[in-house]
């Protein structure tokens, strides 16, 4: 469990503000459990052995939508339990994300909209070589001022 960040308010959001970097490792078990929770029992998500034997892949894969979920969590963790809500997230799966690899999650606030009380962010997941495997953008909305 992590200590929860204080609730983010629109007034405290600053362009340039950084989310992370957070180091994570997605375990094979996590990737498999996610796939099973989604009803995807395809060999590539089950084990290295299944992925190699059944699909000729070098190792098992992390489901793409799981990486979207992890980047969405980077944003919602940063928001905390205030009025800020994730309104949109878009990701591009550039490369295979193999479980067991050391990954880092990154994010930046890139834009704020005073009228809409919203903010845009860049988010991405990179490997140890700094190669961005999954990249995306997100919008958070804070609702009307109190």
């Amino acid at each position: 469990m992590v200590t929860r960040a204080p609730a983010k308010t629109f007034e405290t959001v600053v362009i340039g503000e950084m989310l992370g970097p957070h180091a994570i490792v997605i375990t094979r078990e996590q990737a498999r459990n996610y796939a099973l929770a989604c009803g995807m029992s395809t060999p590539r998500f089950m084990s290295d052995e299944d992925a190699r034997r059944e699909e000729g892949l070098p190792a098992m894969l992390t489901p793409g939508n799981m990486t979207l979920g992890i980047l969405a969590k980077l944003v919602t963790d940063w928001l905390g339990s205030g009025s800020g809500q994730l309104a949109r997230i878009g990701t591009t799966f550039r490369s295979f994300v193999h479980p067991g690899v050391e990954l880092t999650l990154h994010g930046f606030v890139t834009h704020t909209d005073q009228a809409a009380r919203s903010a845009d962010l860049d988010v991405w997941m990179e490997n140890e070589d700094g190669e961005r495997l999954v990249v995306g953008t997100a919008t958070v909305a804070f609702g009307p001022a109190e």
Binding site: F108, T110, H111, D120, D122, W124, V135, T137
Partner: peptide, 10 residues
């Protein structure tokens, strides 16, 4: 050189 940026922060 060029960033080939598709994200603001890059």
């Amino acid at each position: 050189g060029g960033s080939d940026s598709h994200l603001v922060s890059l």
